[in-house]
């Protein structure tokens, strides 16, 4: 897609982690634009607002699991109802500090989750993942 710059959407209720991930991605230069959301609801609102404007679609989402009110899995239940064109463009990975076996298996089983990344986020791990999808990510 021409004229598009790489956008990543970070969804995490923890302000410090949002800041850390923002800095790591910023320093690594993987994306041109980083959108930080402090809740699943905020992330959904961003996508909804820009649904008719593909240039504003994120290419990649990093989603936390444990969040108050709407957790990562509840987010995914709503997220999967977005149009196919959107879901084909935007890849989603989970980024969580969970060690819970159930959470891990649930994340791996979800067809929309390309990978479960564990906090702390290592730039190399993210880079490896992104390079696998670089063709379809348009970045």
């Amino acid at each position: 897609m021409p004229n598009r710059t790489g956008k990543v959407l970070l969804i995490d209720d923890n302000e410090i982690d949002l800041k850390i991930h923002y800095r790591i991605i910023n320093l690594s230069g993987f994306f041109d634009e980083i959108i930080s959301c402090q809740s699943g609801e905020e992330g959904l609102a961003y996508i909804n607002k820009n649904l008719s404007n593909p240039e504003q679609w994120p290419d990649f989402i990093l989603l936390d699991i444990q969040m108050p009110e709407m957790d990562g899995f509840e987010f995914l239940e709503i997220y999967k109802k977005f149009p196919k064109a959107f879901l084909d463009t935007c890849k989603l990975a989970i980024l969580s500090s969970t060690l819970d076996f159930g959470d891990i298996k649930k994340a791996e089983a979800n067809p929309l989750v390309i990978k479960l990344l564990k906090k702390p986020l290592y730039p190399n791990e993210l880079k490896e993942l992104l390079s696998k999808y670089s063709g379809s990510l348009g970045i």
């Binding site: 991930h21 800095r23 702390p120």
Partner: peptide, 25 residues
Amino acid sequence: IYSISHELRAPLVSVIGIINLVKME
């Protein structure tokens, strides 16, 4: 046990994340 794995570990993982940033910078 579940809450240890989340509440106790999450801030620790943030600390490790900050150390990684310190390295990157």
